[in-house]
């Protein structure tokens, strides 16, 4: 019994210590962002590996999610004779929810795990300590550019996802199922609001990008420097990112769309 309580206490304490280290790490990273201004090349390289390389999976998933929404939406809406509102359904669900959430989940799997593995291996092979020996701050040199790249890329990827998804919905809805092209767009235009829907979606994806990149970088930086440690850290990145994305999504949705 005592042992059980001890384990509970130990894991609680470990959790809080980790949270504290994570917050400290985030603060250091944020102050390090200023150091990128004289060296934009560092950011550019990371934008390439975090953003550009995620483009393909995001676009293809967006296309298919939009097409599935078009199909399912059409079958449900045609029961009520309301196929014309297909555009509203596809656009609202993509812009408000699926765009930010699914692209953030994909981003965590594609870019987040890569970041953790890369930094974890740097730590395991003592590259980070090597940098410190040369009086180069690894947080400023390695972590901050990756963090900024993730935070910038996420909203762009989510916008890409939603835009391609809406086109996918149009291909299926108007091309295959015969919904009128004009009413697809015009109903969408009259029902989707710039600030209520699109800006809120961008804010969501910004928050998700912030959290996912933070988790990925911290897990890599905080890893136990062995091959097993890196593999565990990579798993934790994906699992924890998914949890925080879905949990935060609920909170953000309740705050943003609560009063209408």
């Amino acid at each position: 019994m005592l042992e059980l309580i001890q384990t509970l206490g130990k894991s609680t304490r470990a959790g809080f210590t980790k949270l504290g280290r994570g917050t400290y790490f985030l603060l250091q990273t944020l102050t390090g962002i200023l150091e990128i201004v004289p060296r934009p090349r560092l950011l550019l390289n990371q934008m390439y590996s975090v953003g550009v390389l995620s483009c393909l999976i995001i676009s293809i998933s967006g296309l298919f999610v939009g097409m599935v929404l078009g199909l399912q939406g059409f079958y449900i809406l045609s029961d009520f004779g309301a196929e014309e509102t297909l555009g509203v359904m596809v656009a609202a669900s993509l812009v408000r929810e699926l765009g930010p959430v699914v692209s953030a989940l994909l981003f965590a799997g594609r870019a987040g795990s890569a970041l953790t593995a890369e930094i974890g291996l740097m730590k395991a092979t003592e590259q980070l300590s090597g940098m410190e020996m040369m009086a180069v701050d690894p947080i400023k040199r390695i972590i901050s550019p990756r963090f900024l790249a993730g935070v910038i890329s996420m909203p762009l990827l989510a916008a890409l996802f939603s835009a391609i998804g809406i086109l996918g919905g149009q291909i299926v809805g108007c091309g295959l199922l015969g919904v009128d092209d004009g009413s697809y767009w015009s109903q969408m235009q009259s029902k989707i609001d710039f600030f209520d829907d699109i800006i809120n979606g961008v804010i969501k994806s910004f928050v998700f990008g912030f959290v996912t990149t933070w988790i990925a970088l911290f897990e890599g930086y905080d890893t136990i420097p062995t091959s097993e440690g890196v593999s565990r850290a990579t798993t934790r990145t994906v699992v924890n990112s998914a949890f925080s994305i879905l949990g935060l999504d609920f909170i953000l949705t309740a705050l943003m769309f609560g009063d209408d």
């Binding site: 390439y48 953003g51 483009c55 812009v95 916008a159 835009a163 809406i166 710039f194």
Partner: peptide, 26 residues
Amino acid sequence: QDTLVGLFVAAGIAGLFFLALQVCNL
């Protein structure tokens, strides 16, 4: 790499503009 990053940023911003202009008719 510069070109690809530039294309990526341009595509993302184009997506946002598409959402703003075509989807909600801003």
